[in-house]
Amino acid sequence: MYDFELVKPSTVEEAVKALSGDEAQPLGGGQTLIPTMKQRLAMPGTLVSTTGIASMKGVSASGGVLTIGGATTHGTVAKEAASSYPGLAAMAANIGDPAVRNRGTIGGSLANNDPAACYPAGLLGSGGTVVTNSREIDADDYFQGLFTTALEEGELITAVRFNIPEASNYQKFEQPASRFALVGVFVAKHSDGVRVAVTGASEEGVFRWTEAEEALSSNFSPDAISGLSVDASGMMGDIHGTPEYRAHLVNVMTGRAVKAAG
């Protein structure tokens, strides 16, 4: 990979200042960014590491909201959110593999918005807020398509807030080589309705399956969606699965998630 300058700030203020430079980019755990840089698909001039910023780490729950620092690893979320938000903790516990979970961060995952990543489904399914150094972004406004988010240049995810549902579950049909989702569905049953977020399937990245949400809000059971189908147009197609296959899996995985959520 091309060389760059690595900066290791200890506060958000220092990080934001470093990010204002030309071709500067935040570095979370690097589990996607470093392989991307090895392939020379990314060539930042400066990487601003977030792992030394203590205020961006940790998990806390209060008033029905789970707050996770932007530099918190998947491994930490899997452990520390297990009692307050078990559905999200279980999702985090199945990202990548153990060594990847010890480095990869929630902020890195959400800033990248890979169309097959788990966290975008977790956040969009839960509903919540992306907190940056300068503002708060509603989860419904945050995801804007393939690898695209509402984040501006130099903006840093400092924390993420999830609305904790009454019941939830994430079902991932894994692409066995990459361990990303071929299709992943996060279902969350809130007191005011059900949210269903799908990753891995659409060419536009994570999306809410609103038809299923309406059906499940009046009857939270796999039967409620058995008659529904997802349009295959706009679904991703590759050697791992056709658009029709992915569309079919969306329904299957939603049903499994509803059943597992109970």
């Binding site: 470093i34 392989p35 593999d97 060594a99 990847v100 010890n102 480095r103």
Partner: peptide, 23 residues
């Protein structure tokens, strides 16, 4: 060298990490 295989796993501050995917 693509963080898939795990031959490079070491412990950093007690946690297993892939040393090919950390600076």
């Amino acid at each position: 060298d693509t963080s898939q295989c795990g031959a490079c796993v070491v412990h950093v501050d007690g946690e297993a990490v892939k040393s090919c995917t950390m600076f």
